Computed example of a mutant assay.
Amino acid sequence: MHASFTRLLEASGGKLTQEELARRIGEQAQTITNWKRRGVSKSGALKGAAAFGVSANWILQGGQPYEHMDVTQVKGWDSSTPVDDDEVEIPFYKDVLISCGNGSFSEVVGNETRKLRLSKSTLRKYGVSEFNAYALTAFGDSMSPIINSGATVYVDVGRTNITDGKIYAISHGGLFKFKFLYRMPKGGVRIVSANKEEYPEESLTAEQIMDQEFCVVAYAFNVQNPLP
């Protein structure tokens, strides 16, 4: 059993079955089996950290499980903060760039977590739990004009089941990207860019999904594009 998987089990309390663990962090059971042999992926560590209140770095590398935590669950602003009652504070990974192009490696863990305000009414509108909401920065032009380079994208890490034609943050071979996703027969997936002329779509079979370490990290439910 890989050491990172052992730490993930420890973080969960050590009593969950692999199926229960998969449901708890929104992953497929087969993905959990792969982690047991190969180690937990960075996106998986991010989800595990959010679910169990430990450091994603600790899941991946060991050390201190509760110091310098990389993921902070969303919580309401405390009473001393002058914000509206309808607002909550969500983690903002401003320096974690999610590719909207061909992709480049983004170190999801080990970055400073900043905060953004988001209204509870917005979360209710999109059916997002405040404990699953995060903000990420996009770059590249493959999803333009829907998501432009430098946009702040709000995501729901609790929603990873694919709905055809929706935009998701994905991890594909260690690269993190925003893409349209479509389900294919026998467990396959189509990965589609908005800028189709420059970025042709990709199709993965169920076997390729496993071999290429593809997984859905989060559902993108809102975006704030920068001004030109």
Rank of each mutant, 00 (worst) to 15 (best):
C215F: 00
Q61A: 10
G110P: 08
T72I: 15
Y199E: 08
A218L: 04
T33N: 07
D84G: 15
V192M: 06
P65M: 14
E10Y: 11
P200M: 14
E89T: 13
Y126H: 14
Y93T: 05
R24A: 09
E19F: 04
A3V: 07
R117N: 14
I32S: 00
I98D: 01
A151G: 03
Y168C: 01
M143V: 06
S142D: 06
V128A: 11
Y219K: 02
E198Q: 12
R117L: 15
E67L: 14
W35C: 01
E201W: 13
T122H: 14
M69G: 14
R38A: 07
G101M: 07
F214W: 03
K115C: 13
Y199M: 11
L116H: 09
L97R: 07
G26P: 00
L16C: 06
S79D: 14
D156G: 07
H68S: 13
F176H: 05
Q18I: 04
S12K: 05
I90Q: 11
P185L: 06
D70P: 12
I167M: 04
L60M: 11
K36R: 11
S12N: 09
G53F: 13
V74H: 15
P91T: 13
V153S: 06
V96H: 08
I191Q: 01
Q61Y: 10
D211R: 09
T163L: 07
L16H: 10
E107Y: 10
A135G: 12
K177M: 12
T113G: 12
R190L: 11
S43Q: 04
A50G: 07
E19N: 00
G76K: 15
S79A: 15
E198P: 10
A45M: 04
T163P: 01
Q212P: 01
G26M: 00
S142A: 13
T122E: 12
E112D: 12
Y199S: 10
T163Q: 09
G103P: 02
M210A: 09
R7Q: 10
Q73S: 15
A50K: 07
